[in-house]
Computed example of a mutant assay.
Amino acid sequence: MRGLPHAALVLLSAALLSACAPKGIEDLKTFDHPGGDVRSGSLTYAQRPPAGGPHNALWQTCGVYDQPLYDEYAVATLARGAIWITYRADLPAEQRVNLRAAVKETPKLLLSPYPGQTSPIVLTAWNAQLALADAGDARVAAFLEAYEEGKTAPLQGAPCTGGFGGTR
């Protein structure tokens, strides 16, 4: 791809990433965020929670968090192929337990509350998002299966350990 202008490379990368996106999950939303846009400071995103776009160079360490995360670090983790599951603070404790059980075998994962989220639960991977009302929904497993390898992520295969481990 040597000799192609940067804009052409970005468009080609976005096309290749979206071609890898799984089909068939009802109500799945997909986006076209190219990778490689690393910035510092506070950023604004088109989706909340964000499903890709500019992000900090430092990523959020994968894990389960009881407090909200910085979008900029979480998006950097999405870029590394992780799945980010967010929930409203008023999600019943039983639903949170069900989410934790559903994701316990998913190594590249963030789980955290997300302030102001309209849906009770949102599953997010790079360029893909699914809003759900219930942790027992069969689409949780379908989403995890479709995106756990990070096929749509620009930094697929990069680790999500050793990053930022705090919360906002």
Results as ranks from 00 to 15, higher is better:
P54E: 13
R88M: 05
D90R: 10
G53A: 09
I85F: 06
Q47E: 15
P54Q: 11
V75T: 13
A89P: 01
G35I: 01
P68N: 06
L69H: 06
G53C: 05
L91D: 01
A79T: 00
R88A: 10
T44F: 10
Q60I: 07
R48L: 13
P34I: 03
Q60G: 07
A51F: 06
I25F: 09
P68Q: 06
D27A: 14
Y87K: 04
D90Q: 11
A82F: 08
N56G: 12
A51M: 04
L28W: 03
C62A: 15
Y65K: 08
A89T: 04
R80A: 02
G63S: 11
Q67P: 00
P50C: 03
G63R: 06
Y70F: 14
G63Y: 03
P54T: 09
R88N: 01
G41A: 10
H55R: 15
R88W: 04
Y65E: 01
R88Q: 09
Q47G: 04
G35C: 11
G24H: 02
D32S: 14
K29Q: 15
T30N: 02
I85W: 00
G81R: 06
Q67T: 13
D71W: 04
G36H: 03
Y70K: 13
D71E: 15
H33F: 15
G63H: 03
T44A: 14
A74E: 07
L69G: 04
K23A: 14
P54D: 01
Y65S: 05
R48V: 12
D66M: 13
L58S: 14
C62I: 09
L91E: 00
P50F: 05
L58F: 13
W59G: 06
G36R: 05
S42G: 05
A82I: 08
S42F: 12
I83F: 05
H55S: 15
A74G: 12
F31Q: 00
D90Y: 02
H33T: 07
T77E: 07
P34K: 02
D27K: 14
E26R: 15
T61Q: 10
A57L: 14
L69V: 07
Q47Y: 01
T61M: 02
Y70I: 12
L78Q: 01
I83S: 05
T44W: 08
A82M: 10
G52Y: 08
G35E: 02
W59T: 08
T61E: 12
P34Q: 04
L69W: 05
D37M: 08
A89N: 08
T30Y: 07
K29C: 04
T77G: 10
A46E: 15
G81H: 01
V38P: 00
P49Q: 11
Y87W: 09
Y65M: 03
P54C: 02
V64K: 12
A74M: 15
W84S: 02
L58D: 15
Q47K: 11
A51E: 06
G35A: 14
S42E: 13
P92A: 12
P68F: 03
I85Y: 04
G63M: 09
I25M: 09
Y65V: 02
N56K: 06
T44D: 10
A57D: 14
Y87P: 04
P92G: 00
C62P: 07
A46G: 10
P49R: 07
H33G: 00
F31E: 01
A79N: 02
K23R: 15
G41N: 09
G41H: 08
Q47F: 00
L78D: 07
P50Q: 02
T86W: 00
R39V: 09
